[in-house]
């Protein structure tokens, strides 16, 4: 629309856009370890039913996704792949780090092959603690992310250079 890029977006319009973004999010599930099953229970099981939050799981590729759930242990061998897939996602993009391993290394804090926290390679918006977190905890994390999106100033986010994390 040009409004967003110019940074002159009216407040009510921001709110409207944020609200519509908030309730129509494609989630790319990056299932790595134990947490992947709890994520599967949250996304694919009728008991937890993530779609009632306006989140649509299982997109065909990360290029269609709005946010990414990294669930499970990220190893040093896997880290470049996580980074690469995150780079393929279109901006605005968000990351939920699910479980202790993705947060900080978890029980493998002293391992020789585990990356101690996915935030070393990509920026994380919401951390969900637990080993593994219950599906309800992941849903709570998604609600927190939605609140964050609701209060976001899009003009601020899109002004200037794109976000680059070294």
């Amino acid at each position: 629309m040009g409004l967003v890029e110019s940074g002159k977006i009216p407040k009510p319009l921001t709110k409207l856009l944020n609200m519509s973004r908030r309730y129509s999010m494609w989630v790319y599930q990056w299932g790595l370890a134990c947490c992947a099953i709890e994520m599967g229970a949250a996304f694919a099981s009728p008991r937890y039913d993530v779609m009632r939050l306006g989140v649509i799981p299982l997109p065909a590729s990360p290029r269609q996704a709005d946010f990414l759930v990294v669930s499970g242990t990220v190893t040093d061998k896997m880290a470049p792949v996580v980074r690469r897939l995150w780079e393929q996602m279109p901006d605005p993009k968000y990351v939920i780090s699910m479980g202790s391993c993705a947060n900080c290394g978890g029980p493998y804090w002293d391992s020789y092959s585990v990356t101690k926290g996915v935030d070393q390679i990509i920026p994380v918006d919401v951390y969900v603690p637990g080993c593994p977190p219950r599906p309800e905890a992941l849903l709570e994390g998604i609600v927190l992310l939605q609140e964050r999106i609701m209060n976001e100033d899009m003009a601020e986010r899109w002004k200037g250079d794109p976000i680059v994390v070294e």
């Binding site: 790595l32 370890a33 134990c34 099953i37 499970g72 242990t73 190893t75 061998k77 896997m78 792949v81 029980p107 493998y108 002293d110 391992s111 020789y112 092959s113 585990v114």
Partner: peptide
């Protein structure tokens, strides 16, 4: 190897009761 977490090395620096916490997570289902 994308999920290699080094269990066999880590058990060598954990006491016996601590090891069960770790090996729980081998076959997570």
């Amino acid at each position: 190897g994308y999920m290699h977490r080094g269990y066999e090395k880590l058990t060598e620096v954990r006491t016996y009761p601590q090891v069960t916490t770790l090996i729980n997570r081998i076959d997570w289902l």
